[in-house]
Amino acid sequence: MPVIVTGAITILIGVGGMLAYFWLSNILLDRVFFPAKGENIGRNVRRATAIRPWLFVFPAIFALSLYLVVPVFYSAYLSVTSFASDNLAERGRFANYAAVFSDPEFRIALFNNFLWVLVVPAASTFIGLLAAQLTDRLSWGNIAKSLVFMPMAISFVGASLIWSFVYHPDPEIGILNAIRVTFGAEGGRTFIDGDVIDSLWLMVVLIWIQTGFAMVILSAALRGVPEDTIEAAIVDGANPFQIFFKIKVPQIMPTILVVWTTITILVLKVYDIVAAMGSQYRNVEILPTQMMQSFDSGNYGFATAISIVIMVLVLPVMIWNIRQSRAELR
């Protein structure tokens, strides 16, 4: 059977199955269990209303528990039970964690991760904010915004490939080297060759992708700043810079923080860019790539220990992010 047919059938079964589930479960609820008739009509309607939301969320809860919650606990379990050697196993339950934290490569990865967390969210948010403000009143602002936003539609691996060409050592291929040669440099230079600082070149890719996201969200927030407060500031004598930094930015600060933390969470999970562009260099390694390497070499205990470390790092940011965006909704 051709692939396209199997694909179509899968989609039909999936979508049709879900529709059938919603339809049938609601019919069961309304006709069989709590029919809106008879002597208990009031009680039945109330109970049906109370149960109905659960019918609709059940598939999502089920799938999320199966593919997210269970793996989290299983990973935690593996990290304290699966050991690469008997030697390691004898050192107690937390031997994997001890091994992780004493591993020099882990320290490099952790350090790099911190660099990523420090640089990428800050740069993306700042450039996005700038782009949002600068395109706000332009006649061609929407075109500019679409262009800035477009990288969001490219997969991380695709973007890495594009930037690999940008950084290419051959001046005939890499635009950066082409520019350098134009200004008199002798031959091309290899940008990513294993220095710690090379992480920055990789971060550029993610900044390039995430700036669009920050810009779109912040642009909407800037539009929400009451025009009156800006006019009041004009009458008060503020210049455009003061209006931007003292009137507009403070008013959208909650949104800025949500954008910042959202990108931070993403950065802590980033894997593809480093894997695609710097996999051969230890020095640009980050936690997820190290985790994958241990996983590939069958060292499950070590890999899951790293994954739990990543989760512990992401969790506080995540909780804060959710709280902040909820507060903003209110």
């Binding site: 009451p226 009156d228 407060t229 006019e231 009041a232 500031a233 004009i234 009458v235 008060d236 004598g237 503020a238 003292k246 009137i247 403070p250 008013q251 600060m253």
Partner: peptide
């Protein structure tokens, strides 16, 4: 506007929401 010697009170008050009353008046 700022050099015309005028001050304006807006219909919506147009107070700066992130500043205290003091800062609003001192701005």
């Amino acid at each position: 506007p700022s050099q015309r010697g005028i001050a304006m009170v807006f219909q919506s008050y147009a107070l700066y929401p992130h500043m205290t009353v003091y800062e609003n008046m001192a701005f």
